[in-house]
Simulated assay, not measured.
Amino acid sequence: MKKYFLKPEKKKFIGIFITSKALNKILKIYKKKKNIIGIKINIKKTGCAGFKYTMKYCEKKKKSEISFSNYNISIFLPKKKIKLLDGLIIDFINKNFHKNFEFYHKNSKKKCGCGESFNIKKT
């Protein structure tokens, strides 16, 4: 699986890695949603395992976010959760009737049975 690197705005961060399938899907989203400048990714407490990744359209960058950009796309992460999200790998799965973004991170562990939520390793 080939991964593309999204550069952080500050060199002290690892960056985000994105597969070609996820890159193509995000580029299609950009074409449909003309007013967005990127995608916001966050985690929230929910589900049986503890946390879930969330994605939203971004129309304006906030001071409380860090941007990761390359290949004509930008991903925005909240500064408060950067340790949990920096180094994230994003993929897009298209299997039968199931189409969604999948996220992989070294600090993620123990997904629930349905795969919707995960727990976080203590660092």
Rank of each mutant, 00 (worst) to 15 (best):
K81I: 07
F5T: 11
A49V: 08
G15K: 07
F92N: 11
E116T: 14
I93T: 06
M55F: 02
I75G: 03
F51L: 00
I90G: 05
S74G: 04
N94V: 12
K2D: 14
F13K: 00
L27K: 14
K33T: 11
K83F: 11
N94M: 08
M1A: 12
N100G: 02
N42K: 01
K79I: 14
S20M: 04
K81T: 12
G113L: 15
G15I: 04
I66M: 00
L6R: 00
N35V: 09
N107H: 06
P8A: 13
K95V: 13
G15S: 13
M55I: 13
P8R: 11
Y53W: 12
K95Q: 14
K60H: 10
Y30L: 15
F5C: 02
Y57E: 14
Y53E: 11
K111C: 08
K109D: 07
D91G: 04
E102N: 09
Y57M: 01
N94F: 04
K3L: 15
T46M: 13
G38I: 00
K83V: 10
T46Y: 09
K60A: 12
S69V: 01
I73P: 01
C112N: 14
K10T: 11
G87F: 06
K2A: 11
I90A: 08
G47F: 03
L23R: 03
K21M: 08
K33Q: 15
F68Q: 01
T19V: 13
K95Y: 14
K45F: 07
I37M: 08
N94P: 00
K63D: 15
N119S: 14
M55A: 09
G113I: 15
K45C: 10
H105L: 12
N96W: 08
G115R: 05
K33Y: 15
S69D: 12
K60S: 03
P78K: 05
E65M: 07
L85A: 06
Y4K: 13
H105R: 10
K99M: 10
I18Q: 08
